[in-house]
């Protein structure tokens, strides 16, 4: 038998909906166990290699994947921008991934083109993790969010989450909604200006899933009901004119004053990076957990790597 022959059709993660609720719960359970017992996992990926193929720059996602693999005892190879890869010479995603999958045991890939990781997964002999494809999917951010909510609120059922800011183009929001609407008793409060409201097809998905949701224009109006407040960036390039941008941007800045009507045990989340949508003064409020959230990202990625490699 040819020892160079490799296994085909490995399991990949392209969209959060590729995972069942039971699998997500399993990943959360594993991540919690890694947090509690890190020493039990520190050699589990010895002699395994993660390739980080980042065709566009990223700080936290790439470093989070790198740290995750290193904490599991594995090695990391790859590149952090398209200019330092063969893509600069015009190589296709399919060819790049076919080659890399001969050298690594698992791939984390970020690409500016939507659907690139799906193409990669179809040409790879090892699992491919979508680490962000343009404005499309970012499933490991969603897993990060789910682990954070689960740890802070004691589970993923029966709570009210406010999603605030750019709900039209925000990929993190869409994926989080898709994941949470499969749990029970999650109520969604959508807080956005008319220009940046959640797309109709997403609302139709929520209705089809029987999810309860309401739409608000002002953050203050929604605040008292929330158990989780998920802030996103309102980006200037989404607006037709500067005046609208400035007016709306300022109404979605979270300050200590705006937090006054909020519940004492509400948690504030943000996928980061933030620009000015959460005032720095909020960082010291016990409800702020966006840095905690970024920390959770490393552990859930460890759990995901183990899951896709079939380890543990």
């Amino acid at each position: 038998m040819d020892k160079l022959k490799v296994k085909n059709n490995p399991r990949s993660l392209i969209n959060i909906t590729d995972l069942s609720v039971a699998e997500i719960d399993h990943l959360i359970e594993t991540a919690n166990d890694i947090i509690e017992n890190p020493e039990a996992y520190q050699e589990i990926c010895a002699h395994k290699k993660l390739a980080t193929l980042f065709f566009e720059p990223s700080t936290r996602t790439r470093l989070s994947f790198t740290a995750a693999m290193q904490e599991l005892g594995g090695d990391v190879l790859g590149f952090s921008e398209a200019a330092s890869s063969s893509a600069a010479k015009g190589e296709s995603v399919a060819d790049t991934v076919q080659i890399v999958s001969l050298y690594a045991d698992i791939i984390a890939m970020r690409h500016p083109k939507e659907g690139a990781p799906l193409v990669a997964s179809r040409h790879s002999n090892v699992p491919v993790i979508n680490a962000g494809d343009g404005g499309h999917f970012h499933p490991t951010q969603t897993l990060t969010d789910l682990l954070t909510i689960s740890r802070k609120k004691g589970g993923l059922n029966n709570f009210t989450i406010g999603l605030c800011g750019d709900l039209k183009f925000g990929r993190t929001v869409h994926s989080l909604i898709e994941a949470l609407m499969r749990y029970t008793g999650v109520k969604f409060i959508l807080i956005a200006p008319p220009e940046l409201r959640l797309p109709k097809y997403m609302k139709e998905k929520m209705n089809a899933a029987g999810a309860e949701w309401a739409e608000y224009e002002k953050l203050e109006d929604a605040m008292p009901d929330l158990d989780v407040l998920y802030m996103t960036r309102v980006q200037k390039e989404r607006f037709f004119n500067e005046e609208d941008y400035v007016r709306l941007r300022d109404s979605y800045i979270l300050t200590l004053d705006r937090l006054k009507p909020a519940k004492k045990d509400m948690i504030i989340m943000h996928p980061l990076p933030r620009v000015n949508e959460i005032a720095v003064e909020v960082d010291n409020d016990p409800r702020a957990c966006y840095f905690y959230q970024a920390h959770c990202g490393k552990y859930i990625r460890e759990a995901l790597i183990l899951f896709l490699l079939g380890l543990k």
Binding site: S92, A94, P112, E114, L118, V119, D133, G134, G135
Partner: peptide
């Protein structure tokens, strides 16, 4: 912004997501 705009040799695949309104989405 779709990968099909640059990647050579891949199939153009669409899935029917709403039969009543005949809506297809790119895979």
């Amino acid at each position: 912004r779709c990968i099909t705009s640059t990647e050579q040799g891949i199939d153009q695949i669409f899935h029917l997501v709403d039969p009543d309104r005949r809506i297809y989405r790119c895979a």
